[in-house]
Structure formats: C-alpha cells, structure tokens
Design a protein around this nucleic acid. Structure first.
Lengths: 215, 215
DNA sequence: CAATATTTTTTGGTTCGCCAAAAAAATGCA
DNA sequence: TGCATTTTTTTGGCGAACCAAAAAATATTG
C-alpha cells in the first residue's frame, strides 16, 4: 500500500465506488492526473484485490477496498477534529494537513487519538467518522453534474478540498441550499444553477460540479 | 524537499555534519542504502545548497542544511512528546511513528503542537528540542566506534532507532555508563568493551557502535 | 445509421530513488 | 616505497508513478 494507492482508494470511495461503477474520467479529474495514469494504477489495484475493473465500463471497490477506504476516511476525519479542537485550526485549513497525516497513521495511533479526542462521531465538515470496525454510511452519492437540466436538488455534502471550499464560499453555495439546475454547457463547460434559497443564479465549473453531492 | 532528502539531512546532522566531514560509508550504513545511492543523493543536495561535498573526502552541511535539519529534529522530538504524553505510548515505540509524522508536518502545525504541549524542552529520550528559531547544541559527537582501544569513555546519547534501543537494552548498555574499549575486530566486526559500571564485558556490533555517542 | 465527439486504453518516454558491479582514488601495512 | 585493502564514485539497470499523444472502443446526434 502506497500513499498514491490510498488516494485512489479514497476518491473512488467518495465517488460512490461501493455501490456503482465509477468512470476513469471522474477519478482522473478528482486527482488531477491524466486518464492513462488512472488506467495504470487501477490495474495494479485490481491485481491486489482492492478494485474491480471492467474495461471501458467502470471501476468499483471490492470488500477489501471498501474496508481500506473506510479506515482512511476514519483517519482523515479524526485528524481534522484534532486540528480544530487541539491545535486551533479553522475549517478551511484542515483538509490538506489531514490528507498528509492520514497516510502515516498506524492503527494503534488512530485508536489512541480517537480516545484522546473523546470518540467524536462527526468531522468538522459534518461528515460521519467511521468507528473502529469501519462501519458507517454516507447518504448522498449523486453529484451536481449528474442532475438533469430542470431538476431541483438539495446540496448535501462537499468533498473537502481547500480550493473547492474557497471557491464554493465565494459562489455562496452552502450545504442545505436548494438549487434548480438550468443548463450544462458543452465541452466541459460550467453548470448553471439557480439557488432557490436566495434566488440568485450561480455558474459552477464543470470540475466543481463533480465535487458537490446532492439529493 | 522530499522525505528521502530529509532523512539524509537528519542523519548527516546526527553524525556531526555541522562541524566535521561525515563519510559516505557512515551515511550508507545508517540509512541502510548502498554507497552509490549516497553519492547520488548527496550530489543533488549539493546542487540545492544543503550540503558541501569534497569528493573522496567527506560531506558536511551548509548553514541552510543545518537549519533544515534542526527543524526536522524539532518536529521529530515534539511528536515524540505528543505520543508519550497524549497518546500513552512507551519509549521504545515512539521513534518510528515520529519518523513518519515529521515528514508531513508544516511549520504552522509544529508550532501549534509545541504550544499545546506546553513548550517542552526535552524529548522523552532526553534530547534537547530546538526552539522555534532552531537553535540548540547537542554536546557529544564522538561515536563509540571512533574510540581507540584502551580509551575509557562515558555513554552519552543514542540515536533513537527502535531496533537499536531494543538491542542496547538487551546488552544492558545505558546512558551514563562508563566503558573501557577493549578491541575492534577487523572486517566490520564488533567492538568489545568493558562496562565499568557493573564490570561486565559487552560485545557491541560494528553498526551499533556507530550509533552510540560517547564523551 | 453514419459521422462526429468523447472516453478509455495503449504506447513511449520522464524523473526519482534504489541496487550491483566495475572502475578509480585513497589508505594502510609490510 | 609498493602492494593489498578499503572507500568512493561511476555505470547501467530496475520499479513506481507520472505525462502526452496515438489508437481503440463507446456514445451521441443530425
């Protein structure tokens, strides 16, 4: 297991790889790597029994892969709690630090940290922290980009990336907002939505629209 | 800066690269890499202004290199304090964990951690923790292997590697012990010493004799 | 339903750090 | 001093993860 494999694992998990096939493109976009790199890495993960890959069709996680991903999410979110509660970090600054820490955290360490923090149940972004046995269920898996023009959806969760959070903050798109999807521009152009909460029109980049989960 | 460069930096620092030239061999031995790998890595570090290399003579650190190494020592030791005080780790288990953590620790994070821990001055092994500006001075730089047969020296400090600490624990060689060096076996053989504290004879491996600092 | 567009995979090439073995320089001892 | 040993550097190669561009497969749509 390498930090890179861990990143792939976590992204596939976050994109819904537990219960549906995720496309190469989604992964490449999320990790900022070329499509070819994804194909290559996935073939290694398939050999190791972490993922299942049907060529030209999609990628999903095996039980083993899901288990490993949950462990990583647990580590990530517990470190986020630590950074906020113990080191006085603010919400927007914790993701990147936790991203690094999670890759060098042993089981023993994370369990001790969990206890020290008083076994918190949620990370500072509102996500659920899996317990020691890794179980939990995140509810929303549909992404803003998947919604059809005309759909009305509720913003439920963001992938916690610093630049994304900053961008969405500037756009004034928050968790809980109801939005109506107006149009998808071609050529990976932005998605235009109407925020029904304050009745403004927002233009969300193609990439960001893959990071915003809706119901 | 990569984790590997950081490891080289720290080892050169610990072997005395601030005030004398360190040999390729010492570094290779400490990091468990081939001599050729050291030459290669050092040439990169020289280009980056971290080290000075006189071919066939030895390697030492530049001011910039020393500064970076001190920063790493600070991170390492503060994490060690954290592991013992906050997570309930025992002495022998902290080194490897801190080794990983130090490579993913930003300046902001380490300063916040320092404060959270109450600005400790020493790590659990007794080493001095450099302050925010990186200053401090470790006193012993001569290694057991450097002592001549017949010399009587005092054990002052160990490089805190888990296997080493376990090995030395079994040998019953502790900090503060006075020992008389009896002989150095050829072909990288062990060093035989007499522990004057309890008057026993100890056989210390060639490699370990490079990790034990004496005065 | 054929032509175009998109997505995915394949191919060839890069960098980083590692190694083993060969060659060169320095050291040590007779 | 001179030959053998040790240390260091050089050389050629490997695996991991990346990329860009070409080729193959799939999807869309006029």
């Amino acid at each position: 297991m390498t930090p890179m494999k861990e990143d792939y694992l976590k992204i596939i998990f976050e994109l819904g790889g537990t219960h549906k096939k995720v496309s190469n493109k989604q992964i490449a976009l999320s990790l900022n790597v070329a499509a070819g790199s994804v194909t290559e890495m996935i073939s290694k993960m398939t050999e190791e029994g972490l993922a299942v890959h049907v060529p030209y069709s999609g990628i999903s996680l095996t039980k083993k892969g899901v288990r490993a991903a949950e462990e990583l999410v647990r580590k990530h979110r517990l470190w986020e709690v630590f950074l906020v509660e113990k080191l006085g970090y603010s919400l927007a600054d914790i993701h990147d630090e936790a991203e690094q820490l999670e890759h060098v955290t042993s089981d023993r360490m994370i369990n001790a940290l969990d206890e020290m923090l008083g076994n918190p149940t949620h990370c500072p972004h509102g996500g659920i922290i899996p317990d020691r046995s890794g179980h939990y269920h995140e509810d929303s898996h549909q992404v803003l980009n998947d919604a059809k023009d005309g759909d009305i959806v509720t913003v439920d969760r963001f992938i916690d990336n610093h630049d994304l959070l900053t961008y969405l903050g500037e756009l004034k798109l928050d968790i809980g907002d109801q939005v109506k999807v107006l149009k998808h521009d071609p050529f990976e152009g932005p998605v235009t939505v109407q925020n029904l909460t304050d009745d403004t029109e927002l233009i969300v980049s193609y990439k960001a629209a893959h990071y915003v989960f809706v119901k």
